[in-house]
Design a protein around this nucleic acid. Sequence first.
DNA 1: ACAATATTAGACCAATCGTCTAATAAATTA
DNA 2: TAATTTATTAGACGATTGGTCTAATATTGT
Lengths: 212, 212
Amino acid sequence: MNQIAPKRGRGRPPKTDQHQRETRERLLRAGIELLTEHGFASLGLERILKQVGVPKGSFYHYFSSKDDFAQQVVAGYGDYFAAKLDRWLLNTERAPLQRLMDFVEDGKQGLTRYQFKRGCLVGNMGQELAASHPHLREQLEAVFVDWQNRVAQCLLAAQAANEISEDADCQALAEFFWIGWEGAILRAKLSQNLAPIELFSSMYFSGLTGRT
Amino acid sequence: MNQIAPKRGRGRPPKTDQHQRETRERLLRAGIELLTEHGFASLGLERILKQVGVPKGSFYHYFSSKDDFAQQVVAGYGDYFAAKLDRWLLNTERAPLQRLMDFVEDGKQGLTRYQFKRGCLVGNMGQELAASHPHLREQLEAVFVDWQNRVAQCLLAAQAANEISEDADCQALAEFFWIGWEGAILRAKLSQNLAPIELFSSMYFSGLTGRT
DNA sequence: ACAATATTAGACCAATCGTCTAATAAATTA
DNA sequence: TAATTTATTAGACGATTGGTCTAATATTGT
C-alpha cells in the first residue's frame, strides 16, 4: 500500500534579517487586503500564503485556525481604521462637520482606488459571517460601536460649535451615519460608481443642518 | 493503477407523481432560503441537495452551474419580493407614507422570525459577489433599481397627498431608502436586535416629513 | 415494438482545511 | 566555546468537500 517514500521535514530557513520576523504582521496585512476583496469563505489559505511567500507551517504556527486568523485581522483593521478616523475627526484645523465630510471624501477615494472591489472589511465580514460566527459577530459589532462613538464625539463638537441643532441626538445620528455609510458602500459596489455615496452624503448632511 | 471497478449509471427512479416534477421549483425555493442564510461560497451543493432530497445529477440537469443557479435564485427572489412590495405599497386602504411604514414593519417581523440570521438575499449576495461575479452584480443592481422605482412611485403618491414637500426628489429619496434599509439590516444582523432598523426608520421618516 | 428524450445515481478529480513530523536557525545556558 | 533548548519552517498527508460528467434507465411519443 504505502509505496510512497516518506520524505518529511525540511528545516527552518535562514532568518536572514528581522524582515523575516515580521511574518505575522505581513500575514495580517495581506489578510486585510484579501479578506476585504474576496470574503472569508472564498479565500483559500493557499492564496494568502502565496502572496506573502510563507509556507503553511508558519501560518499555523502564528494562528490556531482560519477563524482565529480572521479575528485577528478584524481586530487589526478595527484599530487601523480607528486611527485613520481620528486623523480626520480630530483635525482641529477644520470645523467639526467639515471633518466628517473630509472622511467621506477620503472614503470615496478609497473606493475608487480599488475600483469598488473592496468596500469595508467590517461590513463585508459582518454580512457574510454574522449568522455563522457568533464570536466574530460580537467583535464586528464592537468595532462599529467604537467607530460610531468617534463620530458621535465629532458631532458633539459640531453641536458645541453651533453647526447643528443643540437638541440633536448625536449618538443616534452617529449610528445613523454608519448605517447609511455601510449601505452606501454596498450599493456603490453594485453600481460601480460613487453616486450612492454622494447621495447618502448629501442627504445625511442636509438632514444634519436642518433642511430636508 | 486502476484497480477500481467502474460501476456507473444507476437509472432514473420512478417519477411517482407530479410532485416530483417540481424539482426545479423546490431547488429554487431552498436556494432562496439557504443562500440568504449561508451566502454563496459557504453553501455546498450537498446541503441544498439533502434538504430537497434530490441527487446531484438532477441539479446539474436543471442548472448549468452553481453560478447559474444563483442567478436564477436571485431572479426568482427579485420577482417574489417585488410582488410583496407591491402588496404593501399599492395598498390604497392606507395613506402612501403609511404604506412604506407598513413595509418596514413587515421587514422587522421577517428579521425577527429568523433571528437576524437571514437579512436580504440581494444585499448579502451583493456584498459577497459584486467584485467577483460581474454578471450577477448587474443583475443585483437591476433588482435594486426595480425596487426603488416602486418606492419612488409610493413617494410620489405621498407627494400628491401632500404628505411630503412638493419639491422633494422622490427618486433620490427612494434610493436613499434602500441604501439605509440595507445598511440597517446589516447592522441588525450584527447587533441581533431591531434597534438599527428602528433608528433608521425614525430618522428616515422624520427627514421625509420635514423635521430633523 | 421501437426510438427519442428527460431525468437520475453516483463516480470522479481537483482543491481545501488543518494536522503533523522532521529539520534547523537562533537564543540560552553551561 | 560547546551543549541544550526554543522558535520557526517546509511541505507531505488524510479527511472532506467542491463541482462536473458519464452512463443508465423511466417515460413519452411514434
